[in-house]
Design a protein around this nucleic acid. Sequence first.
DNA 1: CGGTAAATGGAATTTGTGTTCCATTTGATT
DNA 2: AATCAAATGGAACACAAATTCCATTTACCG
Lengths: 188, 188
Amino acid sequence: MSTPEGGARRADAVRNRQLALEAATGLLAEPGTAPTVEAIAKRAGLGAGTVVRAFGGKDALLDAAVSGLLEPVVRCGTELLAQLGPVRALRPFLEELIAFQSAHHGVNAYLEGVDLPAVTALRTELVAVVHEMITGAQAEGAIRTDLDPAVVTTLIGRTAYAIARTPAPAEGLTDAYLTVLTDGLRRP
Amino acid sequence: MSTPEGGARRADAVRNRQLALEAATGLLAEPGTAPTVEAIAKRAGLGAGTVVRAFGGKDALLDAAVSGLLEPVVRCGTELLAQLGPVRALRPFLEELIAFQSAHHGVNAYLEGVDLPAVTALRTELVAVVHEMITGAQAEGAIRTDLDPAVVTTLIGRTAYAIARTPAPAEGLTDAYLTVLTDGLRRP
DNA sequence: CGGTAAATGGAATTTGTGTTCCATTTGATT
DNA sequence: AATCAAATGGAACACAAATTCCATTTACCG
C-alpha cells in the first residue's frame, strides 16, 4: 500500500511529503523544465523512491501539486462573483485566470494528457463559475443572449487557455483579447 | 549518411519513402493514435529501420508529413486573399483553418514540442497571410484600428488553434467564436 | 544472367522514464 | 538507552520509444 491511511505516519514522512509537493510545484512554475521524478527529487533533496512513495505514484503527486495551484484561482472566481456580481466579475477573473496560467506554464502540459482526478474536479468547478457569470450577465442584459451560455463558457475557457499558453506573448495580447471579447459579447 | 543526395536512389527506396510518408500522414489524421515509428512502419508494411532511414529520423519524417498537410491550407489562404480581398477572405479562411486542425487532431501535438523546420516555415507564411488580411481590412476601414495588427494576428492564430483543439467541441463552437470575433473586431 | 552496391527487416542497442526493492538509517515508544 | 517498525536512498528493474547494425534480399547495370 502506498499511503497507510489509518496508521500514524512518522514526522519525517509528513515533512518529506510536503517537500516533494513544494518541489513539484516549484518545477511546474518554471517553463521548459519537465517535472520528472528525478528532477523533483533533486530539488527536494530526497531520493527518487521517497518522492514516489510519498503520494503513491508520480501522477498522484502532480495531481496534488496542480490542484494546490488551481484551487486559489477557483476560489478567487467564486469570491469575485459574490462580491462584484456576474457582469463586473468576468473580466478581472479572466485576467486572473490568464495570469495564473502564464505564470505556471508547466501546468498546462499536465492539464491535458494524463487524467488527474482532483484537477479534473477543480476544472469542473471553474467551468461552473464561468458559466454562472455568463448566464448571470445574460440575465441582466449585459451581454448578448443569442449565444448558448454553455458554448460561450467553452469558448472563453479555451481561448483564455490559448492566450495564456502563447509561447512568446506579444505585448498587450491579453488586453487585446479581453477587448475583442468584451465588444464581441455586447448585444449586437 | 541518411539521404544520399547526389547518388541515384533505387526505385524501391523511393516507393517506400512515399509509403512511410502516407502512413505517417494517415496516423496524424486519427485522434488518439500516437505516430510512433513502430506504428508508422506497421501501417506502411515496412520495417522500423526502413521508415527511419527513409527520412533520416522520425522528426524529419513528421516534418514532411505535417508540411504536406499544412501546405494546401496556406495556399488556400493566399488564394482566398487574392480572390476575395482581405475583408471577405478572413472568415472563410478561419473556417478552413479550424476545420483542418480539427480534422488532423494528431498534428497539433507536433506543432509544439519538437522543432520541424518545414512546418515552422509554413506557419510563418500562414501568419503572414493572416497579418495581411488584418492590415488590409484595417486599411479599408472594415475593422477597428485601435489594435496592433500583429497582436490581432497572434490573437486570431492562437484562439483558432484553441477552438480546433477543443476535445469535445460543443455544437456551434466555431460559429460562436467567429461571431464574437467578428463583432469584437468591428469599429467600436 | 551474374555481380555488386543499395536497401531491407527486425533484433539489438540506446535513451529516458517511472517504479520496486532492500540494506541501512531514523523516529517513536517505553 | 534499547528496541523495532517505519522510512529512506539510490541501485536495479521495467518499459516504451527511437536509432543503429548487419546478415540477407533485391534492384539495377552490363
